[in-house]
Amino acid sequence: MIKHINVPLNKEEYSKLEAGDYVYLTGIIYSARDAAHKRMQQCLDNNEELPFDIKDQIIYYMGPSPAREGKVIGSAGPTTAGRMDKYTPKLLDLGLGAMIGKGKRSADVMNAIVRNGSVYFAAVGGAGALLSKAIVGSEVVAYDDLGTEAVRKLEVKDFPVIVVADSKGNCLYK
């Protein structure tokens, strides 16, 4: 089913999405990948605040190429989500709404998705040039020193994703 949704959604609405839905996202999402997740985990270990309020938000596993002059961002496709599996259940339990990436997730993550009524979206891997056209705003909000791995607040317009894993435990990957 094709859906157009404004993000972030509230928690109940994420759980209404179903594996196989083709969804166009409009609104705000945050980018974070390996190094940013490691630092966020260190924050939590030290009882410090995360660099942004993750409640109901969507994290996009992505590290862009640099923007050319006059452009918002460079190439911006998804990276392999499985590398973030170690950190994800905790973030979901703390209120993270959903994730965008590509590739399989661990059983722990799949359980956390069901437990929290969350959802895991996939964007098409290797289509970074095309996907960048759906990103209309980008601002580094944390860990600037990490370069491409910094946390970015992204404004997206009709950003195309597919629901791979839903809150009922369905998963499109075999």
Binding site: P64, K71, G74, T79, A127, G128, A129, L130, S132, K133
Partner: peptide, 15 residues
């Protein structure tokens, strides 16, 4: 994606 990459000089993939 390949067309956009070449025409607008955006890398084909961010990696």
């Amino acid at each position: 994606n390949l067309v956009v990459a070449e025409e607008e000089m955006i890398p084909i993939c961010q990696d």
